[in-house]
């Protein structure tokens, strides 16, 4: 045994893969903190998709036309799908799906603050597609290059589908804006209520976001919360103008020097309250999720019993063949 160069440590190898901008895959060695951070983020993201079905599902039975109903059904089904892609990614990190669901309904893990606001009218469905899904797209496009392979691949799939979500919302709003005075008022009212919560979706400001620096070093996140928020504002202002609605911020104006729109101070006290469980709909959302889980228990049990019975019958038949 002569002078072989010493093997780089597992940690060094991990760091090298990240530095080369390659992807970490499930069976690779990874630091505990990386795994923990990802499970937290991916689970939270999955929970958001699942809870996110509720505000819009509220309007499925009352959609004003068959066309709108079919679109809304497809969209809510997509949200369920997005949740499942993400639970699938979380499982590659060693998380257990049943446990993740329990963590959600026992409030041990969080979901996006945005879904704790009520959908008061049908215009809210359009504004959610335009602003909430628009903000989600801003957040999620850079996550397609996230350093963890299964998460990044899930995001690619999700982003492809989000584009339909945003466009159906904007089209819905354009239709309403071309309608009656009452309809235009509904669109403006929904915009007023959803604008600020949409800006909060990007999370706390950078100086108050404890996980950002490490997540960026690990290339889990590619941009800071404030960078993404600014990008969203810059993208959205011309869309609001084209639609003919006013964004409810008197301080919103173009800043030539920065090359960006300036905007007013976000009410972080409200954000903290909603995250802490005291938003308008937190209790209702979790109760609904818990009810769906508990009411579905007999279906899960019956399916498992059926599968076990058939597996046993099958095994018996093969034994008999011999």
């Amino acid at each position: 045994m002569s002078t072989t160069t010493p093997e780089p440590s597992l940690e060094q190898h991990f760091e090298d893969v990240i530095a080369r901008d390659q992807r970490i895959e499930p069976r690779d060695w990874m630091p505990d903190g990386y795994r923990k951070t990802l499970i937290r983020q991916v689970a939270q993201h999955a929970h958001s998709e699942i809870i996110g079905m509720q505000p819009e599902a509220n309007w499925i039975t009352r959609a004003p036309s068959l066309r709108r109903k079919a679109i809304l059904l497809a969209k809510v089904q997509d949200e369920a799908g997005h949740g499942l892609y993400l639970y699938s990614a979380a499982e590659t990190l060693g998380a257990d799906r049943t446990e993740l669901t329990e963590n959600l309904i026992e409030s041990r893990q969080k979901y996006s603050s945005i879904f704790n606001y009520p959908t008061l009218g049908f215009a809210d469905v359009g504004v959610i597609g335009w602003l909430v899904d628009g903000a989600a797209i801003c957040n999620q496009v850079p996550l397609c290059r996230s350093s963890f392979g299964p998460y990044a691949r899930g995001m690619v799939r999700i982003c492809k589908e989000e584009s339909f979500h945003q466009r159906q919302g904007y089209e819905l709003l354009m239709t309403m804006m071309g309608g009656t005075e009452d309809q235009r008022r509904m669109v403006q009212d929904a915009t007023n209520r959803w604008w600020w919560p949409s800006l909060m979706m990007f999370g706390p400001p950078d100086h108050n976001s404890p996980n950002t620096a490490q997540s960026m070093a690990w290339k889990i996140k590619r941009h800071t919360n404030d960078e993404l928020r600014q990008r969203f504002v810059d993208m959205t202002v011309p869309q609001a103008e084209a639609l003919g609605v006013t964004l409810p911020d008197p301080e919103l104006r173009w800043n030539d020097e920065r090359g960006h729109y300036d905007f007013g101070e976000i009410d972080w006290a409200e954000f903290t309250q909603v995250i802490a469980g005291n938003g308008p709909c937190n209790t209702q959302r979790l109760a609904q999720r818990r009810r769906a889980h508990e009411d579905g228990a007999w279906v899960r049990d019956a399916a498992a019993a059926y599968a076990a019975k058939h597996a046993a019958k099958h095994a018996g038949k093969h034994a008999g063949d011999r």
Binding site: P150, A303, A307
Partner: peptide, 21 residues
Amino acid sequence: GSLRAADAEMALRHARDLYTR
């Protein structure tokens, strides 16, 4: 990707709904 199902037949149906919409 992956999914949870009671048996292979259910897994196929769920896979159709989840991954080929």
